[in-house]
Each structure stands twice: as structure tokens, then as C-alpha cells.
């Protein structure tokens, strides 16, 4: 089963290597990884998606927690959370098909962010399912280039009437 780990780390050189190295050294596979600075410039947040049974994930979390530069690790898969990926797709787009592509973009609530002579760049955010769907929808037009971020995720805020 896929698990989403939210990891707060010291914003220092070498931290990514320590985290990634731990995964490969202990034989865990990273499905996706995203990292960036948080509102505290001294702290970065990593979102790592890793596949494994609960015993493996338990080990991953504990081993990560042992790294001195890791401030906090949590497996948020079990919590109510939002997750998003961002994709940029450069798709072949001669004038006669642009209308059709724009309809698809609308349906997915994506955006066209660049127009070239023969191509469009489409930006789309969403969960993995949505990203897969827009990619499939655009495939017939000819995808020239595609780049996607790893998943980022966040636990939802407490709602009124809870806890």
C-alpha cells in the first residue's frame, strides 16, 4: 500500500542525500518525492510517497526519525488530507485542433500557460488520478514534453464540531 510521509527537515545541504540514501540503503522504494522550503526558512518539508506494508512503513518512519537533520516525520495517509501534483505538458497543437484542446483544458480546470507556433503548454494541478486523466486525454494530440512534480500533501484543518 502507498503511504504519504510528511517530513520536516533542517534546511541544510546534504539533507536530501541523507534521506534518499536511507531509502536506497535499506531497500525501500521512493515512488515520488517533493521538497521545498516552508514558511520557516530554516525548515524544509519533504513529501515522500513510499510503497510497503505497515511493518515496512513503521521501519521507514523510525529510521527517518533517527536522522539528526529530520525534525519530524508523519505518515499522513490515514488522516484526512489533500494531495496535489503539478504537471506541465507541452502538446502538439496545430491551429485546427486548438479548440478541442482548450475544451479539454477547461474540463480539467487546467490552464494554458504558453502558446507556440505548433504547440501549447498546459499546466494542471490535482491528485494523481486527475493528472493521469488529463495526460491520457492529451495523448492523442501528441505529447512533446511532460514534467510533473512529486506529490505534495497536507492534513486538513480541524473542522467545527470536531475534537
Amino acid at each position: 500500500m502507498s503511504h504519504i510521509l510528511a517530513i520536516l527537515v533542517e534546511n541544510q545541504s546534504g539533507v536530501l542525500t541523507r534521506v534518499a540514501g536511507l531509502f536506497s540503503r535499506r531497500g525501500y522504494n521512493i515512488d515520488s518525492l517533493a521538497v521545498g522550503q516552508t514558511h520557516d526558512p530554516g525548515v524544509s518539508r519533504m513529501t515522500i510517497v513510499v510503497d510497503g506494508d505497515s511493518r515496512v512503513i513503521d521501519q521507514v518512519v523510525k529510521q527517518l526519525d533517527k536522522l539528526v537533520d529530520v525534525i519530524e516525520v508523519s505518515d499522513i495517509s490515514g488522516d484526512e488530507h489533500l494531495d496535489r501534483e503539478l504537471v506541465l505538458i507541452k502538446v502538439e497543437a496545430e491551429p485546427e485542433v486548438r479548440g478541442e484542446i482548450m475544451q479539454i483544458v477547461d474540463i480539467f480546470r487546467a490552464r494554458i500557460v504558453d502558446i507556440g507556433h505548433h504547440s501549447l503548454i498546459i499546466e494542471c494541478t490535482g491528485d494523481a488520478g486527475k493528472i493521469r486523466a488529463i495526460e491520457n486525454s492529451l495523448k492523442p494530440f501528441g505529447i512533446l514534453e511532460l514534467v510533473r512534480t512529486g506529490k505534495i500533501a497536507m492534513v486538513r484543518g480541524q473542522k467545527y464540531g470536531e475534537g
Partner: peptide
Amino acid sequence: IDAAEIGKNVG
């Protein structure tokens, strides 16, 4: 002392 040792090899 090391939480990661607990349950690593043996339940």
C-alpha cells in the same frame, strides 16, 4: 534505546 530496533527483525 533505539525505537527503530523495536520490531525491525522480530515482532
